[in-house]
Write a protein that binds this DNA or RNA. Sequence first.
DNA 1: CCATGATATCTCGGCTACCGATATATTGCG
DNA 2: CGCAATATATCGGTAGCCGAGATATCATGG
Lengths: 118, 118
Amino acid sequence: MTQAAFFVLTALADQPRHGYGILREVEELSDGEVQLRVGTLYGVLDRLTADGLIVLDREEVHEGRLRRYYRLTDEGMQALVAEAERMAAGASAAKRRIAEGRQAPHPSTGPGLAGGLA
Amino acid sequence: MTQAAFFVLTALADQPRHGYGILREVEELSDGEVQLRVGTLYGVLDRLTADGLIVLDREEVHEGRLRRYYRLTDEGMQALVAEAERMAAGASAAKRRIAEGRQAPHPSTGPGLAGGLA
DNA sequence: CCATGATATCTCGGCTACCGATATATTGCG
DNA sequence: CGCAATATATCGGTAGCCGAGATATCATGG
């Protein structure tokens, strides 16, 4: 599971969206930190479809422009849940390691990482 | 920051390690879920060194075999902290979205996840 | 004595995937 | 009319992952 695929699945987790909408949604839900590129999107969409994690939901014409909506399959939702847990575990393991590598010289006085690793 | 690079930085967060030790450490800290491959490792090590996130710490000969130890630079530690934050935020956002998707199943898009999610 | 496996380094080539650039088309604004 | 935003999609260069192999030492077992 690549980063791009993860964020596409996340953007589709609450409701079906079309390609361009996914682009904006990923940027919004990551507070602008993750920028999914147009050139990346359609490859990801094709791969996720081939893997059965998403499926074409419907096509609409909105103000003269075609919108192709995708939605998660049950398998896609399960994959997202599993990946979210792996990521949380990975982030958690990293934070634990960081704390171990920064053992305070005087634990009674040292604040350590409090406030820095929220 | 690739997944492989993130786990290498994590493995080095508490103490300097040599290549093969990083391999085993990544597998251990991820409960066997992440398998960093040998062919991947040295490319990652070179890239992280070129980027100034890790540095060659020392070389030792242990039971006739060379061990090349790497350690995090200050910049590498900062990058790891930032990446861990991004990952935690991403995982958190995904879990929030999953919950939102379960709360509002749209009738026109099918029954969705009934009975299927742990 | 040799085979196997673990430890330890590193290289190479194939393949996947990311992303900038490009193409196409409509709507809205100045 | 030009430009930006919306919306689709493709193509080619490049970066990065990974299987495979090369090289070498030491321990275990047949």
